[in-house]
């Protein structure tokens, strides 16, 4: 059975994006994948919880796609989490709406893969830095998967540089949709990469 995929996209200044924009454009024509552009939908940050909850309920996989600002997400995505994941709906007594769904982050970083190591410039691995998202998913009964990461985004300049990442992102989304992913492995992995063939 095909899974329905929701991309919650958060980028405050998409006009200057080089990687995220291309990743997003690459996902637009995928059937079964919904793109929800938060900064376009809520330019004043007035997130409507009921609408967002309905959207979540209609999907099985939640992909938080965003640049990895200050080891976290842009402000609107945080606001979105704060307002939408309500007690009694997403967690707590009676909060079972998200149970069994999948969640992951799809992020771009300025730093290289080596920078996100215990002995690297950023001192922590990405999985460590993403633990707030991991625990958020866990509290809501969702399975949290390893992140899809594009490192060194500032050095990627044109379609030639970004192309392989776009193809990898499409392959991941397709695998998530078609349920061809080894979920147990994907939950443990440091980061998520799916080759065009669909094998992790």
């Amino acid at each position: 059975m095909a899974r329905r995929v929701l991309i919650l996209f958060a980028h405050p200044i998409l006009e200057r994006s080089r990687v995220n924009r291309r990743l997003l454009d690459g996902a637009r024509d995928l059937a079964g994948v919904t793109i929800h552009d938060l900064y376009e939908e809520y330019p004043t940050f007035a997130v409507e919880p009921a609408r967002e909850q309905a959207l979540l309920a209609a999907h099985d996989v939640v992909v938080l796609q965003h640049p990895f600002y200050w080891y976290s997400a842009p402000a609107l995505l945080k606001e979105w989490l704060d307002l939408v994941l309500q007690l009694g709906w997403a967690y707590g007594p009676g909060g079972t709406a998200l149970r069994g769904k999948l969640m992951l982050n799809a992020i771009t970083t300025g730093g290289s893969a080596e920078a996100y190591q215990p002995d690297g410039k950023n001192r922590f691995t990405l999985r460590e830095l993403l633990t707030p998202f991991d625990q958020t998913a866990h509290l809501c009964g969702m399975t949290y998967l390893a992140p899809f990461v594009v490192h060194g985004a500032l050095r990627l300049d044109d379609d030639g540089d970004v192309g392989p990442h776009v193809r990898a992102y499409r392959a991941l989304l397709t695998a998530l949709r078609d349920d061809t992913l080894d979920l147990a492995g994907a939950a443990r992995a440091p980061t998520l990469r799916v080759e065009a063939g669909g094998r992790p």
Binding site: P12, F68, Y71, T109, K121
Partner: peptide, 25 residues
């Protein structure tokens, strides 16, 4: 809005150096 500005981050980075961290890290 220098906080979001990739251009500023790029130009302040010397080629042989590790990428300037956040934003975006």
């Amino acid at each position: 809005d220098p906080g979001w500005d990739n251009e500023a981050a790029r130009s302040s980075r010397r080629p042989d150096e590790a990428p300037v961290e956040p934003p975006p890290p």
